[in-house]
Design a binder for these strands. Sequence first.
DNA 1: GACCTGCTGCGGCGTG
Length: 728
Amino acid sequence: MTPAFEKLARPIQKWIRTQGWSELRHIQSQATHAIIGGNADLIIAATTAGGKTEAAFLPLISQVLDDPAQGGGFDLLYIGPLKALITDQAGRLEEICREMELPVTPWHGDVSAAVKTRALKAPRGILLMTPESLEALFIRRGPEIPGLFGATRAVIIDELHTVLDSERGVQMRSLLTRMELAIGRPIRRIGLSATLGDMELAKAYLRPDDPGRVVLLEAQGGDAELMLQLRGYISGDKDEKTPPADHQIARHLFRNLRGTDNLVFAGSRQSVEIYADQLRSLCEEERLPQEFYPHHASLSRDHRDFVEKRLKDTAKPTTAICTSTLELGIDIGDVACVAQIGAPFSVAALRQRLGRSGRRAGQPAVLRQYAVETRLTPHSDYVDRLRLGLIRSVAMIDLLLEGWCEPPRPQALHLSTLVHQILSVIAERGGASAGRLYRVLCQEGPFKNVEARVFTDVLRALGDPETALIEQGDDGLLLLGRVGEKLVEHYSFYAVFQTPEEYRLISGGKELGTLPIQNVMAPGMMLIFSGRRWLIQEIDDRAKVIVVVPSKGGIPPIFGGNPGDIHDRVIVRMFAILEGNSAPAYLDRTARDLLDEARRHYGQLGFSASSTAAFSETRFAIATRVGTVKTTTLALALRSEGFAVETHDGFLTVTAKDRQDDLVLTIRQIALGAQITLFSDQTNLIFEKFHPYLTRTLLELDASGARVDERALPELCRQIAIKRPEGR
DNA sequence: GACCTGCTGCGGCGTG
């Protein structure tokens, strides 16, 4: 055994021997040296089954055993984003700690109150929590926080890459700062993460005040060989002999995936239902046992557990048709192949998904990408002619092969989460001064981009008698107001993210899952859900329950959602592909023809030489050549100047009301720095949980930080206005 | 033109 092994506590060494490990993995040795040899914050980056949990916990538990704390609460705090992950990890840690009399306490909404009460009475060992449960602890038991975490040596943040700059990530960092302030010292932070494109940014998120001192350990190598194919399909065939594109794809999946474990990422819940239904029918037609199952967040926990268990069970071949539910989190074992239908929304997601395949030594990772484009007619729009879905798929695969993926977004203001944390700090302490709130949240905490003036405006908005979230006591202390008290009292307060209203779908007394309320439903209608077909029997609008029975026909429901942000670099690569002339070897015949066709149309539209094209005196296209945020910003600016604008990947379609409007002139004026209003009264700015309590001015400021990039506008318009050298 | 995640305290009732 290695020097690292010798550093571990005796009981841990004994446990390792009983596991039959011949040696520690490299990342585990490195982590042992870093954790036992120093006191720095740490990021351990490796794939899902890379042994990260043990890499962090074996040395940390060793420290606890070799140098036990005398009281002062839990020794180690683990924060995980999923209940299932916490249950999984608690089980693994209990195995390690069983002989050592170190308690392991999983703590989330499904854990019984008895377990929680016991842990609070004698707080020690390892506590595993969700960010929401930690939030609840601060609000319900604020004064007990120093006693519970006074001796805590380290906090382990699992799946760090999934939180980073998200609402939940900001909430978590705020809680950690508040915990450090409550106990009067920093607590070592250890992040467990998938490998990111830019790990420097992850360091800054883990410890914003001192990212330079964060040690980064990355598991090296392990890159399996990649087998790759992109197949092109054309939908909207008039020819009756050719089946529709989705049938062709379903048949191809059926022929190639049957008999093994696979993941098919279909892009949306609706599309998951469509393909699951078709694959089920194919099994029935061929009189074969069922092995294709849908998996997405609207399906019941029971059904999802069933699919996850089947994936783990090596005896039964299983293919899950899924959304990002199966992209991260609990281990489902190795799969033979990952299929992706339609272009993914980020290279980071594509990489994470592909990481589910090719994990066994000697096995290649297999990616099957399916691109669906519409059949062209003489009237087809230019965006259809440019085959943007196929081009984006190629761009993302290119970038994946180069090892690039999207870095976390630049830090937004997060005013909705700030409102939440203001209420939470007041609840924790029973009241707080404005100065203290500013210090805790904005100076020490994660809301560093919020200036004092903006912070004061937020407090004023919350204190407005109409809003009544907070009020000022006689001594100047800020207290919860009438509405604020009600909000904080209810358990729905702890989560910082918004959730839509839904119907529950019931059949034979069993819940099938949930359905967003925007679906227009009536008894007698037929529905595809959970991969099967149903007839609606009755609807209870007040209880939000729909009762269904099995049927022969049906259509898939709408699940809604918001368009995602495509990164600048992906769009830049798409244009490079449109302007290039070689075709990647992994394209099939149809995909290659579609790519040629896209390039031909790109040239015919004149985009090689100019960034604008006119279809008539009032209808134009602009090639922005940049990602969603900047493209959307230009769209808002042009709308406020009276143009009608549609957005696409790297393109805008612009319609002028009359021919007097000169688009080119407007673009030139913006390029020269003309002042433009981006938001009109009609622009919806409420998309996060606590946005309804803020003023219009604050909402515009919040949107400016995250959804638009006003400063990039003049340069963007300069680039659009100039002629491009032909053939570049 | 998309996806995902989470939740306390207490009253009422049944059982040992």
